[in-house]
Amino acid sequence: MKHFTKLVLGAALGAALAGATPAFADLKMGVAAEPYPPFTSKDASGKWVGWEIDFMNALCADIGEKCAVEEVAWDGIIPALQAKKFDAILSSMSITEERQKTIAFSNMYYNSLPVLIGPKGADKDISPAHLKGKNVGVQVSTIHAAYAKKYFEPAGAVIKTYETQDQVNADLAAGRLDYILADGVTLDDFLKSDQGGCCEQKGAVPYDEAIFGVGVGLGIRKEDTALQAKFNKGIADLAANGTFAKITEQWKLTGKLKLPGAK
């Protein structure tokens, strides 16, 4: 009994020291802790896999860093970066003017088109006016949520916001949503799944660069200019030596992604 206090304090201190790791050991990459196939998702063996994970490994090998995935909630990923929980955001985050007010980005490493999907049927009209009264699902804090807010909400669509993309997909399959606006490549993956059998692509929405930005980049803290330069050099290397094309081929995404260096 007399060791009670010591035990408690010792245990707490031990836990704190065991968990605190020196920052120089790894470059920590913040990945949203949710399935976002084919870019980042955890397979049934508990490993992170995907196009973006392969890109990360190639990039880190190129710039001579040892990288590790740090899981984080998507909606708090920018504050977590600023709170130094990790060194860079690797989570299909588009480079937009709005985000650049807060953080910096590397050059883009891929881009793909935002599309609208919905239940199978003849109705392919995706003009904002046609979506009046329809439920449109988007993931919180995304360029797609911003687009829906600017174009669909004023036209009378009901925007439903979710924490994760898989929840949006699940509610379209459940019939609670009429449309999803999200990245075309990840939605493609969903449409090919059993659950996505309900639905089909309706078309790409007109590209608004002010909202959608210029593609996906690694998000970094504004002061980390050395890291930014390193990343940019790595991305240029991977584009020059054909690594991007190779990874994209492996994930059967050739032609679906716009890659750095490609015209």
Binding site: D75, I78, K101, V140, S141, A145, T161
Partner: peptide, 22 residues
């Protein structure tokens, strides 16, 4: 707010999304 409901926290969540301030 963890399901699509715009309660007080849900709206605050929307503010976080729009302003990048937490």
């Amino acid at each position: 707010f963890t399901v699509p409901v715009q309660d007080l926290m849900g709206v605050a969540h929307k503010v976080m999304q729009d302003t990048y301030r937490i």
